[in-house]
Design a protein around this nucleic acid. Structure first.
Lengths: 191, 191
DNA sequence: ATCGACATACCGCGCGGTCGGTCGGCCGCG
DNA sequence: CGCGGCCGACCGACCGCGCGGTATGTCGAT
């Protein structure tokens, strides 16, 4: 029993179609047909196609932020916290492959103000991660001979690339891959 | 003195515009205006907008393949060859930031047969890299406790992500960053 | 005379978005 | 309890625009 299944159904269909054929190649007509609703119903809940796309970004960003906040709030040794954060973001990236595909491919299709909003929230997320790294560096755990921005980019590159190669049907287990990628990252930044 | 500057001018303008606003958001009209030619001239050299996009892929793929072939052909110790390959692909990725942006963002806008062609050639490239890794593993240089496909994905993730964060106007030197990213990768895969 | 290299006006299509209308349920009132 | 009216949820035919692509013409070189 959903409150309004229409908005959810439409969003789900949109994620699938955007991931499969791209935002620009997907017509609103296709989306509403896939969701089993009409155009009128969709435009009752969303202001525009752009609005629909932004909703996908909003949900993903909110979830990731919340998860990182939770882990950091639990506290503990920097090394443990960082490891937990890395594994978690890898796992959730794997769990949201379609959303990830849309996220990294269609950002430039958003209206300018919404692009800025997305950028702003991604920067927040980035800064929280950077702070963690910095703490580790000041404790002498992580190397300082490479700019922190490069270390951060090196990490996020893996989460970005996941939708491009990881297949749920493939042989690799999600949790295992998350641990392996985290291990590769942490080993490379150790002092 | 170019043979036909028109095709080159159009391609250059297309790369810039596609990178800045995306393939779907860029009209043929915009491209020809930016290139200082007319639509008729463009359609004299290109069959379609899709053709134009594929040209970008074709050039980039051909260049990367050739460069890797050259380095591998020069021979030497596996470790040196792999390091040289990594640094070179990082450097050329930085030198082709705009092409890279288009490459990773607009693949799904190509017609189906051309997508397959791109996939095929990327796989060739991938396999050549994998062979190098495998040689290193059989010599005991690189770890084998993580699937090779994960190691490869971990490497290519950096080249994919570069257009998203690296700025030529930024403080980081291109060659230096290429070396740093290569160093991070090689350290993480060492046995 | 021929032909390649363009120029330009034009076309049809498919898109995102709209708008007048329908319908069911619920609330106040007598 | 019945009834009028109102409102939110939804329908679907329709619109205008901008797009990719084309057809016909021009012109200079060979």
């Amino acid at each position: 029993m959903r409150q309004t299944s229409v908005a959810d159904d439409v969003t789900r269909a949109a994620v699938e179609l955007f991931a499969a054929q791209g935002y620009a190649n997907t017509s609103v007509q296709q989306i509403v047909e896939a969701a089993g609703v009409t155009k009128g119903a969709m435009y009752h809940y969303f202001e525009s196609k752009d609005d629909l796309l932004f909703g996908i970004y909003d949900r993903l960003l909110a979830m990731q932020k919340r998860r990182m906040d939770d882990i950091v709030a639990r506290g503990g040794a920097v090394d443990d916290v960082l490891r937990a954060v890395c594994i978690d973001v890898m796992e959730t990236s794997i769990a949201s492959l379609q959303e990830g595909t849309v996220f990294f491919r269609s950002a430039h299709m958003l209206s300018a103000p919404r692009q800025q909003e997305v950028t702003r929230r991604r920067r927040e997320y980035n800064d929280e991660f950077a702070a963690l790294l910095e703490r580790g560096q000041s404790e002498g755990l992580y190397r300082t001979d490479i700019p922190r921005s490069v270390l951060i980019a090196h990490f996020f590159s893996d989460t970005h690339y996941l939708p491009q190669w990881y297949s749920p049907e493939g042989p690799e287990d999600a949790t295992l891959v998350a641990e392996q990628l985290t291990d590769l990252f942490l080993r490379s930044i150790r002092a």
